[in-house]
Computed example of a mutant assay.
Amino acid sequence: MKKIGLILGIIIFVVLAVGSVGGSSSSSSTSGSSSKSSEKSSVSSVDSAKKEKTEKPVEMGKIGEAYVTNHFEVTVSKIQTVDSLKVDTFTSLDKEEGVKYLIITVSAKNIANESKSLISAGKVILGDGEDKIQITSDETMLSEGYGAFLEGVNPKLTKKTKLVYKIPADYADKSIVWDAFGSNKYIKVQ
């Protein structure tokens, strides 16, 4: 009998929870045409803001040159694309059909006055125009010298790493731009 009461209580709770979520969306949809027009105007203002952003030329760093991001001076020393990668006895990326691995060798000097971490490798943008794609995640490499820095980098010290991205093989020879550690500061690497 206690089990039936418990089950009945859970069902009532779920129904009330779903009802409260559903109720908030229906009240916003019945608020009239004024809210719809304000939604349209906010969407158009967002669209125009996006257009303004894309019209500005983006400042980009280059391979071999130091480029300042949020708290780091970043230098890309080398890029390469490979079919497969064997890092050590335990870590390797096997050859896959239609896949290349983009490896960005980079150093980052902490220019802040306190320790800072770089927990995101950032994204790479491949191609130009309508053919452009974004790769937002790097390959997780648990070997020393690979990946973003989970531990802090002390002030005025430099840390080197290799970032590895799995990319479509047919994009390996196209334009490649790297968002340096997710800072919205871009470096043209190819």
Rank of each mutant, 00 (worst) to 15 (best):
V87Y: 12
S115H: 03
P168K: 08
E144Y: 10
V99T: 15
S107W: 01
S48P: 00
K174L: 02
Q190I: 00
T89W: 10
F90R: 14
G98R: 04
V164F: 08
F90K: 15
K62C: 01
L16F: 15
K109I: 10
K174M: 02
V46R: 14
V15M: 11
G5N: 06
G64N: 09
A169L: 08
S35I: 11
T89G: 13
A108G: 06
S175T: 14
K3T: 09
I12W: 02
E73W: 02
E52I: 09
V164T: 04
D170W: 10
S35W: 05
I135R: 07
I10A: 14
N113M: 11
I133G: 05
I12K: 05
S33A: 07
Q190A: 09
A121K: 04
G32M: 03
E59W: 00
K159G: 02
T89P: 02
P57T: 14
I12S: 13
G64P: 11
T158V: 11
S31Y: 05
A121H: 06
K95W: 00
I63E: 02
S107R: 07
G22D: 01
N110M: 08
D131Y: 05
K62Q: 08
L118R: 07
T140P: 00
D128H: 00
L85T: 09
T89E: 15
S45E: 11
G5T: 00
Q80R: 10
S37F: 09
V46L: 13
S48K: 10
E139I: 13
E65C: 01
G61N: 03
T105V: 04
G32K: 02
I104H: 03
S175H: 08
V106D: 01
S33W: 09
G152F: 07
S35E: 10
A108N: 05
V106T: 10
K109M: 11
A49I: 01
A180R: 07
L93R: 05
G64H: 06
K123F: 08
K159D: 02
V124M: 04
M141V: 15
V58W: 01
G98H: 10
F90Y: 15
G64R: 03
L150H: 06
S27Q: 05
S31H: 04
Y165S: 06
S26W: 13
Y101F: 14
V18E: 10
S42K: 14
I12G: 12
L126K: 02
F13V: 11
I63N: 00
L163M: 09
G61W: 01
L85E: 08
K188P: 01
K3M: 06
D170G: 02
K51E: 13
S20I: 11
S38W: 08
S107I: 00
S183I: 04
I103R: 06
V153T: 13
E144S: 12
K162T: 07
S92T: 06
S84P: 04
S37K: 14
Q190W: 00
I11G: 04
Y171W: 11
T81F: 03
V74C: 07
